Amino acid sequence: MINFNGTLLLEEKQIELHNRGLNYGDAVFETMKVSGGKIFFWEDHYFRLMASMRILRMEIPMNFTMEFLQNEIFKTLESEKSDTKTFRVKMLVWRKTGGKYRPATNNVEYAISFETLKIPFYTLEENEYEVELFKDHYINSGLLSTIKTTGKIVNILGSIYASENEYDNCLLINEDKQIVEALNGNIFLVKENQIKTPPLSDGCLNGIMRKQIISLLKNFSEYTFEEASISPFELQKADEIFITNVIVGIRPITKFRKKEFSTTVAKNLISRLNAKARLD
């Protein structure tokens, strides 16, 4: 079941050949975790979606309020007749068909889809998780790299590279050879009592979970936190590195080349993150 412009469809709607998201990557999306009748960090998702649409000069419909879109999400989920109460929800927004590079209109369409999840809260996976740098292509620093568009070809190629070389994930770099993010989330690096994550100006995604983790870290009196560029040379000197995204929460990296990492800060964060998700 999907929600296409407010109408629930039993089967996935066929995408027309000239769909602008398909032809030009002229689309943005939000991926959300819903558990126990609550969209985790919904306000942050909503305002990021609105900001992304404004950056891409899309016309925001008058009815695209927080309440309306939240109701559309739950209307879609209510079509799932199962005992599962935890979902991964994806909302896609694209500019209506027309034009080539220059759109014929800035009006939009949207679709909401979902899949079920087994675990209703955030848990910490501590099994081996090895990463490598993906250096074949890079993320351009700047505003457009911070929003979630459907133009994710670098992430796709990096995922293929990881699969072919038996890595669990890859770290992406920008044109200045600075670490930007992982294939599926933001990264945080811990060295002694200092924790840092790349700034948005380096081209990393303006992640919803990134925002939550930064908020939590600012209350860690035993650590100092900063948003600062991360050089590849810092990776093997780090004590701990972890990836964040809104579905998994926190995913510790256990190995980069010959260096193995601890999970101390990630363990400390996970319970606080669950509390924040419930209260937000």
Rank of each mutant, 00 (worst) to 15 (best):
F41I: 07
L189S: 11
R48P: 14
L273D: 04
C204I: 10
T31M: 05
I60W: 11
D280V: 07
P198Y: 03
I241Q: 01
N140A: 15
L143R: 03
N268S: 15
D44V: 11
S79N: 11
Q70N: 15
Y122C: 06
N5W: 00
Y129S: 05
L17S: 13
I213T: 05
L17P: 02
I214N: 07
M32G: 03
F40V: 03
P232L: 06
D83W: 15
Y110V: 02
M66R: 14
N206G: 10
A51V: 00
D168Y: 03
F68M: 08
E72T: 10
R48C: 11
K148V: 04
E226T: 14
F188Q: 00
I230D: 08
S159C: 00
C204W: 05
Y24W: 14
T254R: 08
K191C: 06
K211H: 13
L10Q: 15
L10R: 04
A51Q: 15
A27N: 08
R251A: 12
A162P: 01
T31V: 14
L183V: 10
E260L: 11
E78I: 00
E240D: 14
L183H: 05
G185M: 09
Q14R: 07
N268A: 05
T224K: 14
E12V: 02
S229V: 06
I214R: 11
F47C: 01
R278D: 12
M58W: 05
T97Q: 13
F225E: 06
A104Q: 14
I2Y: 00
G21P: 01
I112S: 02
A238M: 12
G25D: 05
D239W: 00
I156D: 07
Q70G: 07
F256C: 05
I55V: 15
M50F: 08
G207Q: 00
N219D: 15
A182P: 09
T65C: 01
S79W: 04
P199N: 09
N274T: 03
I173L: 15
I55M: 11
R272P: 03
F261I: 02
S141R: 12
L77A: 11
I2G: 05
G158P: 07
V180P: 02
G25I: 01
D239A: 15
N219W: 02
I39E: 11
F68D: 10
V28Y: 08
I187E: 06
L124W: 10
L92G: 01
T197A: 00
G37F: 04
L144K: 13
L56F: 15
L9I: 09
K75T: 12
